[in-house]
Design a protein around this nucleic acid. Sequence first.
RNA 1: GCGCGCUUAGCUCAGCGGUAGAGCGCUUGCUUCACACGCAAGAAGUCGUAGGUUCGAUCCCUACAGCGCGCACCA
Length: 918
Amino acid sequence: MDDLSKAYDPALAEEKWYQQWLDRGDFTADPSRAFNGRGLSDSQKSEQRALGLKEAYSIVIPPPNVTGILHMGHVLNNTIQDVLARRKRMQGFEVLWLPGIDHAGIATQAMVEKQVRKEEKKTRHDLGRDEFLKRVWAWKDKHGGIILQQLKKLGCSCDWTRTVFTMDGLDPRHPDPRINYSRWVTHVFVELHKKGLIYRGRRMVNWCVVSRTALSDEEVIMKQTQGSMWFLRYPLADNPEKHLVVATTRPETMLGDTAVAVNPKDERYSQWIGKKLKLPLVGREIPIIADELVDPAFGTGCVKVTPAHDPADFEMGNRHNLEQIQVIGFDGKMTSHAGADYTGMDRYECRKKVVSDLEALHLVEKIDAYANSVGYSERADVPAEPMVSEQWFLKYPAVKASLDAVTSGQITFWPDRWAKVYEHWMDGIKDWCISRQLWWGHRIPVWTRNSEIHVGMEPPVGDGWLQDPDVLDTWFSSWLWPFATMISAPEKLDSEIRNPKSEISVFYPTHDLATAPEILFFWVARMIMAGVEFKGGLPFHNVYFNGIVRDKIGRKMSKTLGNSPDPLDLIGKYGADALRLGTMRCAPLGLDVRFDEQQVELGRNFCNKLWNAARFRLSQGAPSGQSIPTLQDLSANDLSSDDKAILMRLDAAVREIEGAFARYEFNQITAQLYELFWTHYCDWYLEASKATLYGTDERAKAVTLCVMDHMLNAMLRLLHPFTPFITEELWHAINPSASSIQFAPWPTPLSPTDASRLGLQPDVIRFVGQKQEAVSAGRNLRASYNIPANRKTPFAFTPQGDWHKSAHEVSVLKILLNADPLDYVTTAPKGSASAVTPLGTIHLPLEGLVDVEAERKRLTAQIGKIEKELLAVNAKLNDPGFTGRAPKEAVDKHRARADELKTDIEKIHAQIATLGGS
RNA sequence: GCGCGCUUAGCUCAGCGGUAGAGCGCUUGCUUCACACGCAAGAAGUCGUAGGUUCGAUCCCUACAGCGCGCACCA
């Protein structure tokens, strides 16, 4: 048994154990030794286990971006998954935690384009598509997926042999990957196209002028912005003296106006309908049209209509056959249609110029400050431009079944309020724009030759075919994640499903999904639909939505704010276990997490305390089973009240933790563990055990060590999912011949038989609680008279009950009070300070040092406090409403409490009486 | 505008019909042979506001306020 150092050094243990876990393949799931428990009865499962098979448990990681680096959100999300996975391993499951990364089309392409621009002063167009993609693959080789290495530092027990990349199958250098994920993406496109769910259309989409691509609605974030409302005068074509006033928040779009609309019922304008206006700055004549959409009460009741640049106007334009004039280009600069004065100008520069030009013509009626929401491109963080273009759209499959899955409870959301958000979105679901004007991604499997079209897994034969240049939205690949990562290729679906030992047969559907609520629509909802549509089954049973990690003052953590600590720095400073524990401790179900480095410090302190508790144990002799008994060998008579109480605390904690896991209340679990270990075990049990360990009764000593071993081993196992490294380290220190704690059985509640054999009765825990109260009271006396805790001092008891006949109890009190001697008296020694406790009145003899007046004051104050409570209790008992209507239990409880309080007061009065003096 | 969530000790958060809890911070004492990343003692809250239900409300209901978040074609 090696000596442990005085303080825990996480770096050593982390490096050592993670490498060993990898070397031994502890995280590698083996379908051949597992069975899928879905739909099996308990007895069927037992049969499988009898064959030496383990029940399967699986989670898929929410694949981080290939460009991503670890941030606090990942720490929270992945620690949760690791906790789930590690506990299941200990419970005897065959665990697959499947890791991977996605190709992050926009972000990755932008990053490599930037690099190429910087290093070679070239654009991607200079390089050409093939050459550019080579650069991206090279970049990926070098920098991609750093985050997976970082997850290892965090201790994540992913099955790294099964790591999947969403573009596997497309790397020309590795044409035959284990999982041809890309083939799945193509297959799904082709199938949905066959079903008529994918179509091409010229529609208004959100356009990101920085990334130069269309976006889906979900990739646009509405931001509340403080802008202006410009009121512009549009003169009548045949009478420039008269004009209509339109209100707009985007004056630059007026260059593309092709009508002005009013509500047909708006009498103010009814005589204007059908007339023409002369569009200022442009000179185009545009009609005044009537459309129900116009709200007469808003603005002036006149709406400028720009069918090429506004979704509502686009619809209106279609209804009235208006021309679409694109004045803002895909690059965010004005097109030639905007007129010579504005061509090439940035859209916001143009806004300023249009306004000033109109002002010069006295055509600006007024400008109001105006708060409105503007859609921003999520990736580039610039306003998204509504733009008409030709794109591919998906009509979502399996919507109803996917909605029902959640409303019926086949899939449970934790916390369940997200189910409402899901339902709301699914109810109003709109077609998904899946094409992106990028090169990095899965190219759309559509080829055209003149008017011919070919949609298929393979290119068409013959010459002259052109493939669609666009790629698919990254989410169009990640929505297949839970099953496409488990089947080698779509062609193998049937054969692999028929094989009962294939990954898909054993590990699908997954059990839990832990993710962020931000991607409920992006990912979770779509995965459910894809699972139903292509795998014929739901992809998971439970979805746990972790909170968003915020900084101390509640701001979302972000690179731009610079308020996000680097988790690797934190690991370096405090250790991975500390970071994990600190994060989980402050992660209540479904609430955002306020992160504070102090939480990690707390985690480190906890680990150090654990370390030292183990050190203490090791300093006391050999482990259980050798020279000392194990818990199995013991019965009630062997155990002290303290032994029994701590075993009961453990049992209660095991039960609580079981329930908290079932409800995904991770912070409750850590709180339970904290209290069990720190308060009950260290502060009380370990301290009390010194009475025995420093004594001479060898048998008692052996029993105490046995209980300690039992406690430490149980606590280490309960803690292991949260703090894998230190628990593995200490597990081996305490159990020199044991194998990894990762597969040590998860603690279960004691059976009634064991509990009764060990004499674990509620009155034991009550008694130990009373003993602790008595100790606290004694220490309080000591502190009141400034007697340092480390100075031995005599105490005396006027005992209540017969506990003082037990040598064990006396010795425990002596050591906890640091008392010597501890006497028993019928009345208080002259000149002592006293306190009433459940074990009797405790006296601190002060041999004339006692300040009679101060003591009287102290005791009187105590009486005052008790009387106050008594008054409240009596008030209730004197209320006929209470005694008449409250349950008998409550009334009895109050009566007992009143008696107790009265007795205490009497005792203190008696104490004051013995003080003497004036 | 609609919907959801939060509001408890200086800070971060538990609790949830019947004497208000933890950690950090603070005050005091302690290097006592596991741990100063520690031990012991202590101070500190009209549980957002106003109503209602109840014998009794921090807890249930209603309204309001503040903060946060989703959704929304009001230009």
